[in-house]
Design a protein around this nucleic acid. Structure first.
Lengths: 213, 213
DNA sequence: TTTTTGTATACTGTATACAAAATTATTATT
DNA sequence: AATAATAATTTTGTATACAGTATACAAAAA
């Protein structure tokens, strides 16, 4: 019996990714292989495997013969990601409305409902729920390829890393409207709802960029 | 043992990828590392780097302790990819129509026009032009992230590998209609045009699947 | 001072070594 | 002859060794 069925490279991938999203490794920081490998208790070989995977996900950038640095996402790139999300999540929710089980739909409600009653809203918890809300729709839309594309592209991760864009009170209402549209199996309202929801956040970021952060 | 400024891993990635798309390595085939490394004249280390990259792109599947095999795309997956393309290329062409230079638009026309006069249509050449047509729109839409997502997801590569889905005579007309919509900067006609263009191919594949290949 | 050059050190990319697991071949047992 | 058990071989994952490149830093020149 194997202790862990993951090989070291995959394990390291998860741990380093976690270090990046939790900002233990900050954007722009150079990763010294031997150092990080020692810290993880492994050799450079599986660490390099991990870095290779992270590079494929654009979480890290490798400059030949110079090393790998944690990638940072510019505001322009965040806007680009929003456009990808609008397109892909539109497609995902269209499928989700048509094919998702009542259980999956129910889990969406359970995710968001608590925040309608508990005041004040715990921003940290809300952001997690927000993330999971979108993830649930994409994961359960029935298109596996789309979900993988989303995951491997870190469409959610990248945007999560900038924190809440708008006030929970504002987006909570939108989330509820989307859930209701799904529940009455209203495809166009659901698509419209999620796309406008994302568009609003995008517009706010765009505005902030123009005003110089 | 330095041949170019690319490191061996990146070089090997390109060569092995080429071997996969050109069917020199066929889906389902197991890759024996030492063997392929020797064939490429490198050691296992950079080859493993290459395989790691290919796995991140889903062109290859790695089963721990058992090896890596060339991935094959089922018909179901091809259909899933079409839905992703419909979503993303819709977004891309929307941006392209608004922002692309006249030169970029012109290059689209140059790509397709020759096939309107030369008869009979060279299917091989046409497929290449078809691929380039879509690639041009995505590459020049101004959203770099979207283009990278497309590339890394191999959305075009996967579908190209199954060959022409419909007769050139049929799709040629659609391509021309799309170009004309772009030229008169008609966003909704262009979006509609490319999405319906893809939808038609998807429906044909779906039909073939139902009829049992 | 600032710039340049030389040298030591650190780090990366690649090859190789080695143990553990998987696969294949061989023998033994019914 | 079919199945099980065992040994031999292959192959993978990981660690380590090594060569070459980049970086840091001190001494010399401007």
């Amino acid at each position: 019996m194997r202790i862990s069925n993951d090989e070291l490279g995959k394990q390291a991938y998860k741990r380093v990714k976690q270090m990046i999203v939790s900002k233990k490794l900050v954007p722009g920081q150079k990763i010294v292989q031997e150092q990080l490998a020692a810290q993880l208790g492994i050799s450079r070989t599986p660490l390099r495997d991990a870095l290779q995977m992270l590079e494929a996900e654009s979480l890290v950038e490798s400059i030949p013969r110079r090393g790998v640095v944690v990638r940072k996402f510019s505001n322009e790139e965040i806007l680009e990601i929003y456009d990808c999300r609008i397109a892909l999540e539109g497609a995902a929710i269209r499928l989700f409305v048509k094919e998702a089980s009542d259980a999956a739909v129910g889990s969406l409600r359970e995710l968001i409902m608590p925040f309608k009653v508990d005041r004040p809203i715990n921003e940290n918890a809300y952001q997690k729920a927000d993330s999971k809300f979108h993830d649930t729709i994409i994961k359960n839309c029935g298109n596996r390829f789309l979900y993988n594309l989303f995951q491997k592209g870190n469409l959610l991760t990248c945007i999560d890393s900038i924190g809440l864009v708008r006030a929970p009170e504002e987006t909570l209402q939108e989330h509820m409207a989307i859930i209701e549209a799904i529940e009455r199996r209203d495809v166009s309202a659901a698509v419209e709802g999620i796309q406008e929801h994302l568009e609003k956040s995008k517009r706010l970021i765009l505005k902030n960029v123009k005003d110089g952060n």
